[in-house]
Amino acid sequence: MTTTAEAPAKKRSLPWFLEFYNSNVGRKWVMAISGIVGLGFVFFHMFGNLHLYEEPARFDEYAEGLRDFGEPIFSRTLILWIARFGLLAAFAVHVHAGFTLWWKNRKAKPVGYERQQFVEATFASRYMLITGVIVLAFIVYHLAHLTWGLEFLNPSFTRGEARENLIEGLESPITAGWYVVANLALGLHILHGAWSLFQSLGVTHPRFNRWRRNFAVGLTAVIVAGNVSFPIAISTGLVGS
C-alpha cells in the first residue's frame, strides 16, 4: 500500500539562473546553448583550416588575421581573447553539465537489464559521454600540440609558423591517426548533439522536424570530412611544405 504523502519541500533560495541550472531540463538547455557555441567554433575552425589547400602563405595570413580580428576598433588579439574565454566558459559549462547529468542518470538507473535490445537508440546517442571524453582529451592534446607547442609533444614547434607547425605536427601517421579517430568521435558527438539540441531547446515544428535530423547529419558530414582531410592530406604527403 502506498499512502500519499507530501513530497519533501525543496529549497528555493538560489538565484534564479542557478536554480534553473539545477534542474535537469535547465541543465540540458544550458548544454544545448553551450553546444551551439561549440558547434559554431568547430565549424568555423574547420572552415578556416581549409586555407591549408591554398598557396602556403594564405594559411599564415589567416592565422594572423585571427589575431588582428576587430582592428582597428579593438586592440590586436582582444577579440581573440574574448572568444577564447567565451569558448572556455561554454566548454566548462558543457562539460560540467554533461558529467553531472551523467552521474544523476546513473543513479536513476542503478540496475541494468540482463538483456536489452535498443531499437531507436543510435550508437551516437548512447555513447555521448564516451565520445565527449575523447573529444575533451583531444582538445587538450590539440592545444598542447599545435597552440602551445609543448616541447615533448611537438619539438619542432615555432610560434607564428602556423602552417609549418601543422604540417610537421601531422606528418607522423600515428599522430595523424589519432587526429582522425578523435574527429570521428567528434562527428558522432555532433551527430547526436546537433539534433538533440533542438529537443532540449524546445524547437519543434511538425513541418520542419525532419530537417533537424538532416541538419545534424549534414553538419556532421561537413565538419568530419573537412577535419579528417587535414591529417590524411598531410600524412600522405598530398599537402607538404
Partner: peptide, 16 residues
Amino acid sequence: VDTMEEYFGSCTNIGE
C-alpha cells in the same frame, strides 16, 4: 517537471 526530477533521470533525447 520539478517533481519528475526528484524521482527520475534526465532526457538525453535518445528516443528509445
